[in-house]
Design a protein around this nucleic acid. Structure first.
Lengths: 202, 202
DNA sequence: GGACTTCTGTAGCGATCGCTCCAGAACTCG
DNA sequence: CGAGTTCTGGAGCGATCGCTACAGAAGTCC
């Protein structure tokens, strides 16, 4: 049997799935998982509910894919920050990146990983747990990066990488809450700078 | 016409409104405004929807009264902290109180003022704005307390009360997010202690 | 062309949402 | 007692929830 080049069989998709996901991401980011209704999502995506279900599965899977896209897009500053050469540079980049991404004009304010489903009804428990794991993973990455900084001698031997990671992530989550409340970018940036003035918390 | 002692006219209420409000508070605290359905609320309160509406008005007014109760109960540590004699004692009491109240065993984890409605659908916008104002008021109270500390010479003249207040409230909101994610009390308390080791942020 | 596969919009499913109508129960009055 | 007032549960309102059945449209195959 001969393999042959063949395009996809059947009627081709009438919309750009990537752009539709981006639109859904913005709705989830602004209103949260349960605050975003299917009708508001499909309206923003410009497609019917049938097309959404065919392309993404269901609302929860759409949210999971939107969260992945968020992590690699607006939330990419974390992964980038971890590649900074020193622990202080990592911490600075995390907080600066968080301030910038949570207060971007013409974007939803706050962090999708925080406000996407900080609490939920019973039917949203799985998504809430997904975001708990998302935040815990953020902490773990920072923790491990700081542990490496201790091993490298970048951080003093007596420094507590776990405590430092908890400090930085707590500030980041707090910044996300402040941003969601409408607090301005410059004020948060000043505060972030001041919070790291005494690194690594002597 | 003679005034006379008279009890309340009509059939007396068959439940303790105060205790019912407490039960509703716990449901709102755990699931948020929109995540708490009327049926889950009335079930927890032990009354019918009719009784709830007669006693509290509607869901939004029930939430407002629950928030007041929260502020005077589990959230009272803020008002108490503001009465501490020094700015450092105020900041320490705020963070310690936040850690304790957001990680209390057998209570919902996190802060109702944060997770009650950090985001919402269109129909919940008013409650979201109510909590934005609630958080902003918390910041303002701390801000004013620190301003007074500067006037009193407790904080150095060059200290920025607004920045310090933003720092403390950001940590408190961040602690609330961490607690809602299941992070333990002791770990958060250690972090809070470390965060104030360099007060007032030189 | 006809067979096959996939995407599309409409229409509507059962369930739940917040909320209200209504008749009766439980009290204070005169 | 009867009149007046308020609280109670049940039953159900219209609207919206997430989701799906269905038939037709739009492609690739032979």
């Amino acid at each position: 049997m001969e393999t042959r080049q063949c395009g996809p069989i059947g009627r081709p998709r009438g919309f750009d799935a990537d752009e539709a996901l981006e639109r859904a991401l913005l709705v989830f980011w602004e209103h949260g998982y349960e605050g975003a209704s299917l009708s508001s999502l499909t309206t923003a995506m410009g497609i019917s509910t049938t097309s959404m279900y065919a392309a993404f599965g269901n609302k929860e899977q759409l949210f999971r894919k939107a969260l992945e896209r968020y992590t690699e897009g607006p939330g990419a500053h974390l992964a980038e920050a971890l590649r900074e050469p020193t622990a202080l540079a990592v911490a600075t980049a995390i907080l600066t990146g968080t301030v910038r991404s949570t207060t971007r004009p013409a974007h939803p304010h706050g962090c999708m990983g925080v406000q996407g489903a900080l609490v939920a009804s019973d039917s949203g428990r799985e998504v809430r747990d997904l975001l708990v794991a998302w935040r815990d993973n953020s902490y773990s990455c920072v923790h491990e990066r700081f542990r490496r900084a201790v091993d490298d001698g970048d951080l003093p031997q007596e420094a507590d990488p776990g405590l430092l990671a908890r400090y930085v992530t707590t500030l980041a989550f707090g910044i996300a809450v402040q941003a969601a409340s409408g607090v301005g970018r410059d004020e948060l940036q000043e505060m972030a700078d001041a919070a790291l003035r005494n690194w690594p918390l002597t």
